[in-house]
Amino acid sequence: MDPRRVLVFRTVARAGSLSAAARELGWTQPAVSQQLQRLEHEVGGPLVLRSTRGVTLTDAGRLLLGRADALAGELHMAGEELAALAQLRGGRVRLVSYPSAVATIVPEALRLFRAGHPAVDVSLAEAEPPEAATAVREGTADLALVFAYDGAPADDGALTWLPLTREPVELVLPPDHPAASRSRLSLASLADDTWIAGCPRCSQHLVERCREAGFEPRVTHATDDYVAVQALVAAGLGVTMLPQSALTAFRHPEVVVRSSRTLGSRHVGLAYRPGAEQVPATAALMEQLIRTTARR
């Protein structure tokens, strides 16, 4: 099986059509179609079903795509190793991060990294942890800055987890809330309040913590924008929980923040494919993220 044709097939599968794959590769559509047909001949059957709306993977195509993603990831790491033969003179790192880290940890880390390694190209994309981890698995990203509540993310065996830090979760209240002036605050005392939920993982954590305190939270508003969450709280529309980094990235002047050990913590770390830490450019960015996080 020709690995070059496997990579062409991967581009077709990810792009969703022959024409889109041709544009991405800089080829003509007949050239892409010819390579795909030859690969299908090699494997003994169709890998995609063609239609005017694009392509759909067959069972064989779905099976091969997983191997093609792994191949693309390995080839990318090999390219990075060769590009950075001496003192990181070249190379590229693709980082994906969750939103509040993009606003707090990442800018300082990338500033310092660029100062130390100006020849290394770093790209950044924002995504929630599940999507970020998927990007690393599929070979479209090298590092994912992700989080999980009250422990490391579930281990699927495909990625390595490197813990960076742990941050507390805080209660966020309207300024005129009866509990805003209390020095000690129990979660159970907020059982009758209206709650504002965040991203799916944050919402799940909120519900679990409230249940542990003995009540089911009445969630009436939900948004994964931590600025919008605080605006809703400031308007008196409910109370919420937010991790410390979200409040560091933006703190609404009209909310009150209270700490409580019962709210748990958020674990922050890096997810990457095994072996990525041996690629010089990737390893250097990992080290910079470790140092930047340690100083916060």
Results as ranks from 00 to 15, higher is better:
222 A>F: 02
237 L>P: 01
269 G>L: 04
272 Y>P: 01
248 T>V: 07
270 L>T: 06
206 L>V: 08
276 A>Y: 09
211 R>P: 01
218 R>T: 12
175 P>T: 14
193 D>A: 15
283 A>D: 11
222 A>G: 12
248 T>R: 15
238 G>M: 09
190 L>M: 12
193 D>I: 08
239 V>T: 03
210 C>P: 03
180 A>P: 00
254 E>S: 07
261 R>S: 08
253 P>Q: 14
217 P>R: 11
194 T>K: 07
278 Q>C: 00
247 L>R: 15
281 A>R: 00
215 F>N: 03
194 T>D: 12
219 V>D: 02
191 A>K: 00
199 C>F: 12
226 Y>R: 07
245 S>I: 05
175 P>S: 13
219 V>W: 02
249 A>V: 07
193 D>Y: 07
184 R>S: 14
233 V>T: 00
230 Q>W: 01
208 E>N: 12
237 L>D: 04
282 T>E: 08
268 V>L: 14
266 R>M: 14
230 Q>L: 01
266 R>H: 12
184 R>H: 14
182 R>L: 15
242 L>Q: 15
247 L>C: 01
207 V>Y: 01
278 Q>V: 00
236 G>C: 08
204 Q>F: 05
269 G>W: 03
207 V>S: 07
281 A>M: 00
276 A>W: 05
254 E>G: 01
262 T>P: 00
211 R>M: 07
282 T>L: 10
192 D>R: 14
229 V>A: 01
261 R>K: 11
273 R>W: 07
215 F>M: 13
277 E>N: 05
215 F>P: 10
203 S>M: 14
204 Q>T: 12
214 G>Y: 02
284 A>W: 13
278 Q>S: 06
211 R>S: 10
242 L>C: 04
225 D>I: 06
227 V>I: 13
276 A>L: 03
184 R>F: 14
212 E>C: 06
228 A>R: 15
190 L>T: 10
269 G>I: 02
198 G>P: 05
205 H>R: 11
184 R>T: 12
229 V>L: 07
180 A>E: 02
275 G>S: 04
205 H>V: 13
270 L>E: 09
227 V>R: 14
222 A>T: 15
262 T>E: 13
217 P>N: 13
193 D>K: 06
211 R>I: 11
261 R>N: 07
197 A>F: 02
219 V>K: 01
206 L>P: 00
194 T>H: 10
226 Y>D: 01
253 P>V: 13
188 A>R: 09
272 Y>K: 06
270 L>W: 11
214 G>I: 11
216 E>W: 08
229 V>W: 01
231 A>Q: 09
